[in-house]
Amino acid sequence: MWRKKLSGRKNIIILVSLVLASFALMTFGVKRSQSPTILETALMWVVSPVQNLITLTLDSASDVVDHYLLAVAVSEENEKLKHEIDKLIRQNNELREELRQRDRVGNLMEYQKERQLKSVVAEVIGRDATQWARVVFINKGTQDGIKENLAVVTNGGVVGHVIQAGLNTSKVMLIVDGRSSVDTLFSDDRVAGIVVGTGMEFCEMKYVPITAEVNVGDQVISSGLGGVYPKGLVMGTVVSITKATQGLFQEITIAPSADFGRLEEVLVLLS
């Protein structure tokens, strides 16, 4: 009888200790600076070579299937053309943005030279270990000049920003993560709004007035406010709009321009 009682008490003590330890970790997690802890750095250091190996093996296997077993020349050419199209779309967006800027300021302002953005190419080596956060690991860290709050992009558009920079690896929060929010503009009519992640494949654009003229297919770009994303980076396009009969704002769903399903290399903007 007393043994059963003792065992019950022991269980309660263990449970309370675990809950307290977890809450202590949460408090530490909230209060600490953004740099990774020793444990995080050590784990990333241990896991990243195996991640790299698996990613490389998967890429090679996928390469074999795509390029040799199916159609060698056609597939490779298709891949090149896709990259070329992505690049041209980005260049086109940048040129259109520059043209609009010139129109607005006319002859009063000197033509702003093309931004000389310093950047680092990084490979995506892994994804978040949990189900709930939309975070990826890249194989570049503080040794390569990466630090927290740098924007990460691809040819397609904005990917996210660095939330933690380790020595050789860093964590990048994608714009679809539930905690992400970016100040944005519609590229055509310059109406502002905040693009927030939903944790799923799409983002939502908030605080767009009900009176604003928004259409499906409209492009959304970063506004440059907030200090993380430079102005004019393509965020995505509008896929659906809901205007409630009551309320001040529209409910707008945005499809991100970057393809998060096949993120392989990304560009970290250093300035």
Binding site: N11, I14, L15, L18, V19, A21, S22, F23, A24, L25, M26, T27, F28, G29, V30, R32, T37, L39, E40, L43, M44, V47, D128, A129, T130, W132, A133, R134, V135, I163, Q164, K171, M173, D177
Partner: peptide, 25 residues
Amino acid sequence: IGLIQDCLSGSLLGVNTLSKSIIGF
């Protein structure tokens, strides 16, 4: 497992430690 998962995640440190500990318990 929860602690390692937290370290390899962009989420709040301790959330998975809490849930996995209670599940294990």
